[in-house]
């Protein structure tokens, strides 16, 4: 009996919709900067339509039934689009939960002097709406995770360039945190390039690594050890002052790996080791005479 009444309530769409939209606008959680009232009204109308269709097919209110699939699809679509717009999970879920109040009010009007019937109806509706709400949040999170995974993949692709600085010297400027996943990619790329270019010295520049904790240091040492096994020496450069402090506080021991503050220093060391000398050649006298004017 309670079920048919819910159908009834949902079917009186117009009054319910007005109440609901008003409730959402008043809830204080709605991001009026992200969604217009017109759009909100359109979404709410569409949702009630889908819901009422589902209730016509299957009034059981058990949301796992195939008849409710369109309702779930609608919510999935909604939470995905809201997630993209920048809604928080609760701001997204409020869409479903805010339907409770107008529904309860309408049910109350239908169950005057029938406390038990009202209690039953309220319980069923609560359970149903809670499930829908949870489903919305789940989908929201799935959407978010997809975004995160996509970004991670992008970062991995972007962040492992190995550049040749000189004959026999390659550099690997690292940007972003080093986790074990990335370390293995970095390591593979570096070792491949070492073989290809027959480089004996690799400079790993960590200017772009935000923090160095024991984990990151471990990963760096692994890379250095692998390069050394191949017969190439590593220099770690780009250690910022704060990082030097943290490393000492955490008692991170980089062993006998050469470390330098800047890439330039590292390159100097590398060239020195390869027996290369950089010299400033005599500056040819400037044709305009500007170069010598200071002396005369």
């Amino acid at each position: 009996m309670a079920l048919s009444k819910i159908n009834e309530v949902i079917r009186q769409r117009q009054s319910l919709l007005t109440e609901w939209v008003k409730g959402q606008l008043d809830s204080g959680v709605l991001r009026s900067d992200l969604i217009s009232e017109v759009e909100l009204r359109r979404e709410s109308t569409a949702f009630l339509e889908v819901l009422s269709e589902a209730l016509d097919k299957d009034p059981s209110l058990s949301f796992r039934q195939p008849a409710y699939r369109p309702v779930l699809n609608f919510l999935e679509e909604l939470s995905r689009s809201r997630g993209k717009k920048g809604f928080s999970p609760s701001e997204t879920a409020i869409f479903v939960f805010s339907l409770k109040q107008p529904l309860f009010t309408a049910l109350k009007a239908l169950h005057i002097k029938d406390a038990e019937g009202l209690a039953n109806a309220v319980w069923e509706v609560t359970e149903f709406l809670d499930n829908l709400g949870l489903h919305t949040i789940d989908t929201y999170l799935v959407g978010r995770e997809e975004v995160i995974r996509g970004q991670q993949a992008d970062m991995l692709e972007l962040s492992t360039p190995v550049v040749q600085l000189w004959e026999g010297i390659v550099a690997l400027p690292l940007i972003g945190t080093l986790d074990s996943n990335r370390t293995s990619i970095v390591m593979e790329t570096l070792l491949q390039v070492i073989v290809q270019t027959r480089s004996e010295i690799a400079i790993i520049d960590i200017t772009g690594v935000p923090t160095v904790d024991t984990q990151v240091a471990q990963h760096l040492l692994k890379t250095v050890a692998a390069a050394r096994l191949m017969g190439a020496d590593c220099i770690i450069s780009g250690i910022r002052p704060q990082i030097a402090q943290t490393m000492v506080h955490l008692q991170i021991d980089l062993g006998n790996v050469i470390t330098k503050a800047t890439m330039a220093e590292a390159l100097k060391t590398a060239m020195n080791r390869s027996g290369l000398v950089v010299m400033r050649r005599a500056v040819p006298s400037s044709p305009t005479g500007l170069g010598t004017s200071a002396l005369s």
């Binding site: 293995s184 390591m187 593979e188 070792l191 491949q192 070492i194 073989v195 027959r198 480089s199 004996e200 692994k222 050890a225 692998a226 390069a227 050394r228 096994l229 191949m230 017969g231 190439a232």
Partner: peptide, 26 residues
């Protein structure tokens, strides 16, 4: 020890064998 393949180097490091004291070359 010369000419170690990248894959071999990675495997050894993962096994925890960084062969300290062994000289290596490309």
């Amino acid at each position: 020890v010369v000419g170690m393949q990248p894959a071999v180097a990675i495997t050894l490091v993962e096994l925890g064998l960084s062969l300290t004291g062994v000289y290596t070359a490309l």
